[in-house]
Design a protein around this nucleic acid. Sequence first.
DNA 1: TTCCATAGTAACTTTTTGGGTACTATCTTA
DNA 2: TAAGATAGTACCCAAAAAGTTACTATGGAA
Lengths: 109, 109
Amino acid sequence: MESFDTSERLSCSVEITLKVIGGRWKVLILRELFIGIKRFGELHRALHGITQKMLTQQLRELEQDGIINRHVYLQVPPKVEYSLTELGETLKPILDAMHEWGLMYLDKR
Amino acid sequence: MESFDTSERLSCSVEITLKVIGGRWKVLILRELFIGIKRFGELHRALHGITQKMLTQQLRELEQDGIINRHVYLQVPPKVEYSLTELGETLKPILDAMHEWGLMYLDKR
DNA sequence: TTCCATAGTAACTTTTTGGGTACTATCTTA
DNA sequence: TAAGATAGTACCCAAAAAGTTACTATGGAA
């Protein structure tokens, strides 16, 4: 039983993951993108209550963290598609586990 | 391949998990408690930089969420021990997965 | 009789995060 | 020639999270 070790460095790696998926909207955005490629407007409509500013901001952060791709079509009106990178796909087991745990937690309380 | 479903409710369960383990100090506190039972002062010394107020606050939240136990010994000077509950122990796979992912992420960038 | 140790609390300030409103560019369609 | 659609940006404000400093109680040891 190693894993989730005691050293400072290792503990920080949990925090890194938390930083990448944390925040008000990121897991919701990721959920949409796990379904498939989405345009900006589709995401905007899917995430009830998010403002354009917040959506843009969260998408930029996910892009900078290498979790999603941003594909701009040079046309008017603009068309921008977002999708998961390979790295982004690797978050699935974690999000699944968190999903399961959340359900179990709700059930127990 | 179900899991990490698309419905609003299910997505929220990921957010619930995030709420329980999120924040500046909780995963660090949990790491210490996965090692074993710890007194308040031990946690305070182990978590470099945390203030007493923040430690108390985070411990109270974890306790209210059913993740940790607080055992008060009626003696002076006071002695209070913190430990994981059964529910708290079930977070291990998630924290392990986040730990692994964080390491992999650091490696790839 | 004063000091020390432990596990806190109270009141306040700073930092971070999130949100609201208004505005932009450009091609197409009516 | 004016309106509509898309994917944003700029600027400002509110709320939440985190941090700082000072303070408390109590029994035992020096």
